[in-house]
Amino acid sequence: MMKKEKCESLEQVRENIDQIDQQLIDLIATRQFYVDQAVRFKRTKEDAQSPERVQQVIDKVRQKAFEVGTDPDLVESIYREMIQHFIQRELKEIRP
Rank of each mutant, 00 (worst) to 15 (best):
S77W: 01
R62N: 08
R53F: 14
E76V: 03
I87F: 09
A29Q: 09
V61K: 00
D71C: 05
L91R: 05
I83N: 05
D59H: 08
S9I: 08
Q88D: 15
E81V: 02
I17G: 01
M2L: 07
K60Q: 14
S50R: 06
T70R: 12
T44S: 14
K64G: 05
Q49D: 06
I28S: 04
Q23R: 09
R80T: 00
P51G: 10
E90Y: 02
F86G: 05
P51S: 06
T70L: 12
K42L: 04
E67M: 10
F33K: 13
L91G: 02
Y79A: 05
S50G: 08
H85Q: 11
S77F: 00
A29H: 09
M82S: 10
P96V: 09
R53Y: 11
I78V: 14
E90W: 07
V57L: 00
S9G: 09
R62D: 01
Q19E: 08
T70G: 00
P51M: 06
E15V: 15
G69Y: 11
Q84C: 04
E67P: 02
E76Q: 13
D73L: 04
I83Y: 07
Q23P: 04
R95N: 14
F66W: 11
Q37E: 15
S50N: 15
K45F: 06
D36E: 14
D59L: 11
V35I: 08
Q22F: 07
I58H: 00
V54A: 02
N16T: 13
I78T: 08
V68H: 04
